[in-house]
Design a protein around this nucleic acid. Sequence first.
DNA 1: GAAAAGATGTGATTAATATCACATTTTAGA
DNA 2: TCTAAAATGTGATATTAATCACATCTTTTC
Lengths: 235, 235
Amino acid sequence: MEEKKNCPVCENKYCANKVSIFSVLEDKELKEVTDLIIHKKYKKGQIICFEGDVSDRLYIISRGKIKVFKYTKEGKEQILYILSEGDFIGDLSLLKRSSFKFNAEALEDVAVCTLGKNDFDNVLKENPEIALKILEVVHDRIMRLEDLIQSLSTNDIEARIASLLLSFIKDFGIVEEDNIVLNIPLSREDMANYIGVTRETISRKLSSMQDEGTIELSGNKKIIIKNKENLKLLV
Amino acid sequence: MEEKKNCPVCENKYCANKVSIFSVLEDKELKEVTDLIIHKKYKKGQIICFEGDVSDRLYIISRGKIKVFKYTKEGKEQILYILSEGDFIGDLSLLKRSSFKFNAEALEDVAVCTLGKNDFDNVLKENPEIALKILEVVHDRIMRLEDLIQSLSTNDIEARIASLLLSFIKDFGIVEEDNIVLNIPLSREDMANYIGVTRETISRKLSSMQDEGTIELSGNKKIIIKNKENLKLLV
DNA sequence: GAAAAGATGTGATTAATATCACATTTTAGA
DNA sequence: TCTAAAATGTGATATTAATCACATCTTTTC
């Protein structure tokens, strides 16, 4: 029965293994959790959840990236998080069975492992140490949200863009020679929706930052950071 | 020794008792925690912590209200939270000993109960259920931050003000006849710094909302909501 | 209770981004 | 590979809140 504990989607690993919050579990428990998981796939652009949907499962990203966003009064998207492999959405507080307070959409083809709320609650009750792990993750999210708020309330839009680029560097920057290469999973419009400006504005500002030599735009999905110090000065 | 377990600041109660995260503790443990607490007082306007200060204690508010904020690049305050009795600041994740990522200032005379990080860690290790309680509180804060982000990215400033007033109604609205009375702990400037506009702008918008009959301004610290439905329509 | 300090209101002006319109480039699909 | 659709760039203009300046009101302090 060695086969059974493997997850067909997650490249023959325990998919729960990818999630740091489950890292405190022993192999046996990990297998048990993995067996409870139901897999789902989403094509790029597909909606994973709508605000208001009942949130009775935990969604753990096993492959791909998603954007989590709310709509403003004007109908504009405001992105809250970009989540990738190992991240999760869904209600983590015990007993509460509420609804999603945001929308989530696949930025690329995405595989998700889902765990029923009841099953998760049981795992949590039997392994309260998991709550401490969750706290770490949640603490990190809070700090990101606080930073985003600080950025959104800055009137200087180049500063907001610089913050965004610096966070991209942290999350998926690749160092190549003297430069840092960013393969951005977001369209220009998404980037604009992350820092609360219009597509046209971010387009113009990125161009001017290129003219100043701080960055280099390479197609629509790649930005090369030529001068990270300049970015830091802008923030 | 009945006297000793009382907290001199917190009106002769276990001060830890006020904090919902400690509600899972038995009386004996509650006493132990209370004995570990050191009390501090702050006058209105005093700074409780600066961004970057080492955060080696948990600060539990026992009386008064505080504002938690960051500075934008331009030096403008951006308020993140208004916290009151029972709320806390400080690092809740086990083992981590980091620094405050924000500033906090007393909005009125404030009494705080502080618990050393080591002591808190011990309590947490012996009572992992507390982590679940913390998760609830932290979940609530995340939702508030997400809502604030949604509000800040809305260009319609009356909508932002309406959101702010609606959250005030939830937090400290008093129903009187057909109206809701808000005794606001914030100055106009603080309110402006909460929703990311200037003092002048919020002053003008509040006046126009008064002209429309939605609210009534009574001095600087009191706003009477004449028509809550109007506010909801604005958001 | 008076004076000073601080907070708020308000008009005039400026500055910057949103908006609109459309050209151009890139991507995806047959 | 070609074509259609989608995404992006860019100019002109409108709009709106920021800024500046100062009057007025409120609160604090002696």
